[in-house]
Simulated scan of single mutants.
Amino acid sequence: MNQFKELQKLIKLTGDRAKLDAKANETYIVYKTAEGQIVREYSDGNVIPVSEQDESHV
């Protein structure tokens, strides 16, 4: 159980780092939501779903 908590912490830290890098480089991060949708999240907090046409460019 302790390893699971450590893994969750590392995953969160990785996501936080990706957000910081995206803000520094004025870009966005891409991830899959709990509902299974792929989205782009910009440093200003704007979240935009990725359409099927856009997925080939991600």
Rank of each mutant, 00 (worst) to 15 (best):
M1V: 15
M1I: 08
Q3A: 08
F4E: 15
F4A: 15
K5F: 08
K5V: 11
K5S: 10
K5T: 09
E6P: 03
E6I: 01
L7H: 10
L7C: 02
Q8A: 15
Q8G: 03
Q8N: 00
Q8M: 09
K9L: 08
K9E: 13
K9C: 00
K9N: 00
L10G: 03
L10Q: 12
I11F: 05
I11R: 00
I11Y: 01
K12D: 03
K12W: 01
K12T: 07
L13I: 03
L13P: 00
T14E: 15
T14F: 10
G15W: 04
D16F: 07
A18L: 06
A18H: 07
K19Q: 14
K19E: 10
K19S: 13
K19C: 11
K19N: 13
K19W: 11
K19L: 15
L20W: 13
D21W: 03
D21C: 11
A22G: 03
A22I: 05
A22W: 03
K23P: 04
K23T: 09
K23Y: 08
A24K: 12
N25Y: 03
N25C: 01
E26I: 05
E26D: 06
T27G: 09
T27A: 02
T27Y: 03
Y28G: 00
I29D: 00
I29M: 08
I29L: 03
V30N: 12
Y31S: 02
Y31M: 08
K32N: 15
K32Q: 15
K32W: 07
K32E: 15
K32D: 13
T33H: 02
T33D: 05
A34I: 02
E35T: 12
E35M: 08
E35L: 06
G36D: 06
G36I: 06
G36S: 02
Q37K: 11
Q37C: 10
I38C: 09
R40C: 02
Y42N: 04
S43F: 06
D44V: 15
D44H: 11
G45A: 04
G45D: 09
N46L: 14
N46V: 08
N46Q: 12
N46T: 07
N46S: 13
N46G: 06
V47E: 15
V47L: 02
I48L: 13
I48V: 15
P49H: 08
P49M: 05
V50M: 06
S51K: 13
S51Y: 11
E52H: 14
E52P: 06
E52M: 15
Q53W: 06
Q53L: 14
D54Q: 11
D54W: 04
E55F: 02
E55R: 08
S56H: 06
S56Y: 08
S56E: 03
S56L: 06
S56V: 10
H57Q: 12
H57E: 04
V58M: 04
V58L: 14
